[in-house]
Design a protein around this nucleic acid. Structure first.
Lengths: 342, 342
DNA sequence: CGGTTTTTGAGGTACGCACCTCAAATTCAT
DNA sequence: ATGAATTTGAGGTGCGTACCTCAAAAACCG
């Protein structure tokens, strides 16, 4: 017994090959009754489309465009690398990718780039960007031109994207909160929260999740107001010093990037390894800090998974095919020194 | 420009299609000089053989056989389900899978099954089994008959498998150890270790990793000898009670399965939620226990990833193609209530 | 040099599917 | 019932490769 083919379906359903083809590829001009009959035959025979052959026959290409902020920190670079690697693999299914960088934060620039996307030349768009009104409109316009759009890492809930690929920031914050609470133990302690900026939705959501958990489950822990560093190492150092004059510090929660700066500041203060530090995203810096014991846990999303998921989802959207939610669901990874991936 | 094809190579090398084909498929009847010329043309054009088209032309199928223990606990069932799902997906690339169960622990039976594998009818074999001499020989014999073999979840280091798909048990144990140490805090505490049996390599390795970490980094924690329950709820209850008469218990490390029994025993003793419990593998039982706060962390490997990886690796081996190590590397997942996947 | 062996070329069929065209059959509305 | 619209069938071509046959060309041998 070999696998059933389209011919077998045609015979089984009592229709012609052309009709089976119309049903399989959702082409118009088939009665509902016939569609049902064909689908039943498909189910009866357990037919599975041979994607390799299908793609070969189509000789269709899937040029995808991915927009990433330029200079958005280590994490962005990690994602870019993962995307490049995923693209190499995906080339086997004629999925191509061009990575386009835009000045970080300049959503006007990005919106202009999106406006210039040619639906003929681009089968799908993925973007990592903060949500602004300009960008929201740009995404809407793109989708109106039938270009699938997915949000990467940071959701754009009101832009009407086809999909969001990333983890729930609030849940990630909750996870960080539980770890912080447990690592601190059952004594009264204070926790500082650091962020480059609180303007990004992600940071706000993480902080919210973090607070929720600590308030509910670890009442002995006091979470201090967020210290915004705006990327300035000096501001970080000063802020930390100020906090430390008033009181003892049990832990530090790093909402965004800045592992390197934090490590430097802590070293200067002789605090390295004496404070529980929990951060986000696995980058070269945070990995090194984990390895040397300077930070204790990182909440991360697997960049490889993120990248492959992005291309798969865009491909599915381009073909108007359903998405395997289970496979595309990104997990909230907890990374400590002992389970650092090689 | 699109990808070069065999025709492009023929033109570039100044030979005919037939000759290119002979070179590509290592057929005889070509002068060394010509072979070199063709290979140079291939290199110059950066030709990559389209395996999809090649296999289509060969109309090759990939029937894989996966052997799982019967009655090996919830985890095995979880893996089986994941494999079924992965097989459905993989069917699109003519990869088929048959799941074969053997009596858990009966490696003689399994060895007999492996001896009966027909290399013509099976493109690859995956198996989850403890390593025994009989099995080792059976695996060697299979590989001698040119059937790729991969080990699933539990490694068979001396059987000469083509690949191991799973996580490093020792590292998993270390991860559990760090979490236990941190969750317990900086007070002197005792930790009980439970296992159904210590005959399996996995359990031994986990325990070793666990001990290593606690000895080195958490000297205040005393790890008690392993309590083997042999699957008997009553033995578990008695053993725990015995431990509790002597001393206070800070934590419990569950080396293998048995979440349900442990929860029941703890409930009977009024200890639910008052002891730090860390276990392995995410199953229905351990998930429920995490949700209700009865256990605090689970060290797991993603069964979906494991399943997809298994089929991908077997397929690559069958085609004698290289493996994307990055993609096949399973992560050691730390799962707590807050990052339970949906 | 002729004869033999080896190498090469030309061309075809097949794999499973997509996509196209044109005509025939069926259904629908009036 | 009649014409129009819709639905279906038949058949073809091509995707990139494998594998086959037969004849032509080239290389080799003594």
């Amino acid at each position: 017994m070999s696998r059933p083919t389209v011919n077998d379906i045609a015979r089984e359903a009592g229709v012609s090959l052309a009709t089976v083809d119309r049903v399989l590829n959702a082409r118009p001009g088939v009665r509902g009754k016939t569609i049902t009959a064909v689908n039943e035959a498909i189910a009866r025979l357990g037919y599975v489309r041979d994607m390799a052959a299908a793609n070969l026959a189509r000789s269709r290409r899937y040029p995808m465009a991915v927009f990433l902020p330029d200079g958005g920190g280590q994490f962005v670079q990690t994602v870019a690398d993962a995307l490049d690697e995923a693209a190499q693999q995906a080339a086997a299914t004629r999925t191509e990718m061009s990575l386009i960088r835009y000045p970080a934060g300049d959503t006007h620039h990005l919106a202009a780039l999106l406006a210039g996307v040619d639906p003929e030349a681009v089968a799908g768009v993925a973007l990592m960007a903060p949500e602004t009104p300009v960008l929201r409109d740009a995404v809407r316009a793109l989708r109106a031109r039938a270009v699938p759009v997915v949000a990467l890492a940071s959701d754009l809930p009101n832009a009407g994207c086809d999909h969001f690929i990333g983890i729930d920031s609030r849940a990630a914050g909750r996870t960080a909160g539980v770890l912080m609470g447990r690592f601190l133990g059952a004594r009264p302690q204070r926790v500082a929260v650091l962020a480059e900026t609180m303007l990004l939705r992600d940071a706000i959501e993480r902080r919210r999740g973090f607070d929720e958990v600590l308030q509910a489950d670890f009442p002995l822990v006091e979470v201090l107001p967020t210290l915004e560093t705006h990327g300035a190492t000096e501001a970080l150092r000063r802020g930390l010093a100020e906090i430390l004059t008033g009181t003892d510090l049990g832990g530090i929660y790093l909402l965004g990037s800045g592992h390197r700066a934090l490590t430097a500041a802590l070293e200067g203060m002789g605090l390295l390894g004496r404070v529980v530090v929990i951060g986000h995203e696995l980058t070269k810096a945070s990995r090194a800090a984990l390895e040397s014991g300077h930070i204790h846990a990182v909440i991360a999303q697997n960049p490889g998974h993120l990248a492959r998921s992005t291309l798969r989802v865009l491909r599915a959207k381009a073909d108007r095919q359903p998405i395997d939610e289970g496979q595309e669901q990104l997990r909230i990874d907890i990374v400590i020194r002992e389970n650092l991936p090689a």
